[in-house]
């Protein structure tokens, strides 16, 4: 040992140890700050499945936590140590264990009675008599259907209009293109929600108050600049040579758009479609502001008035409605999560 007294093994050991310690510390920190977000959602689910008429049983929440937290930690540790199929097996085991233990400790408390509003149109009236602030509550499915129509139609319009516009802005040269893009940029940064009053007036003047059409058109429009820029980003990324090639192969520009360019931006269309749907599904301000709620119940107003009327009387019902309301958004969100990172905001400098 003439050349060196460095103990490489010790250095490597220290480096490994430091790396693991750092990962552990960061994970711990993120878990700690994420608890305030997850816990309320978890509580909502627990209330929905355990609350009896009268109030929420806090005990069940903490019991469930006491069951799930150790299992989750155990799974996380196992995940770190195992790999491949063993991980899958660990996940299955953890899931089975969680379900089994939840049944053992909470079996008596769990019930689906709070979801009776799904089959019984008159739940709210039965609870509160006729003295409901929201007056006549419809069956929840009618609100669900209206929300579905609002969100879907809105999504279709957003996807169609912004795709068409973005393609044209990305691929065609025309007089005033630069000016148009720059104005659109201002509209995109503009805080559209400040316009709720004049929009109400315009909708009133054109006679569209109390309709589903008004919020559909308004929400679509206010999101349009944002989605056009996102789609333009996708179109800008489609190589020019495929389109040039299509033209020399004999296609018109519209044919090239339909057959060659459009299939290359489906990711973008799905992404903006999902986000437009989620936006339409949650809409509250314009649905109430444009008085749509007077004629059409949607999920947001339904939940709002259920909350106003029976919050003190039946927590379970309110939580169950919330669960039903939040579920479509969540499913779509999980599905669309991978697209989120692919969207770039309208030309921000990198």
């Amino acid at each position: 040992m003439t050349h060196s007294t460095t103990d490489w093994d010790a250095l490597a050991h220290r480096a490994r140890w430091q790396r693991q310690a750092r990962t552990a510390a960061i994970t711990l920190f993120l878990v700690a700050v994420s608890i305030p977000i997850i816990l309320p959602y978890f509580w909502m689910v627990m209330i929905a499945f355990t609350a009896r008429t009268g109030g929420a049983e806090a005990d069940t929440l903490w019991t469930a936590c006491a069951v799930l937290v150790p299992i989750t930690i155990g799974y996380a540790v196992a995940y770190q140590m195992l790999s491949g199929r063993a991980r899958l097996a660990a996940a299955g085991l953890a899931l089975a264990l969680a379900i089994a233990l939840l049944f053992v400790f909470l079996g008596d408390a769990l019930h689906v009675n709070n979801f009776r509003f799904l089959v019984n149109p008159n739940v709210v009236e039965e609870l509160r008599g006729k003295a409901t602030a929201g007056a006549q509550f419809p069956w929840v499915w009618s609100a669900f259907f209206n929300s579905l129509v609002l969100a879907t139609v809105q999504m279709l319009i957003v996807v169609a209009v912004s795709t068409m516009a973005a393609y044209y802005l990305s691929r065609f040269h025309f007089m005033g293109r630069a000016a148009f893009l720059q104005s659109l940029l201002i509209l995109q940064a503009f805080p559209a929600i400040t316009l709720v009053i004049p929009i109400f007036l315009i909708v009133y003047w054109v006679g569209l108050l109390n309709t589903l059409t008004a919020p559909i058109l308004v929400i679509t429009t206010l999101e349009l600049p944002f989605f056009i820029f996102i789609m333009k980003g996708f179109f800008d990324a489609v190589p020019w040579d495929t389109e040039m090639s299509a033209l020399t192969d004999g296609a018109t520009r519209r044919q090239a758009f339909r057959m060659v360019v459009l299939p290359q931006v489906t990711t973008g269309m799905i992404a903006i479609g999902v986000f437009a749907f989620i936006k339409g599904w949650e809409e509250y301000v314009f649905v109430t502001g444009l008085r749509t709620g007077n004629s059409y119940w949607v999920m947001s107003t339904y939940l709002y008035y259920v909350r106003e009327d029976v919050m003190g009387v039946d927590y379970g019902l309110v939580a169950a409605v919330s669960v039903m309301y939040v579920l479509p958004s969540l499913i779509l969100y999980l599905f669309a999560q991978k697209y989120l990172t692919q969207m770039t905001l309208g030309g921000v400098k990198g």
């Binding site: 209009v161 025309f174 509209l187 316009l195 429009t221 349009l224």
Partner: peptide, 24 residues
């Protein structure tokens, strides 16, 4: 082309975005 591709966006933006700014 302009009418087909850009028309719908222009009409919507004019009625429910630009006009409200002026009305306000």
């Amino acid at each position: 082309d302009t009418a087909l591709f850009l028309g719908p966006a222009i009409v919507l933006l004019a009625i429910f975005f630009v006009a409200p700014i002026l009305v306000n």
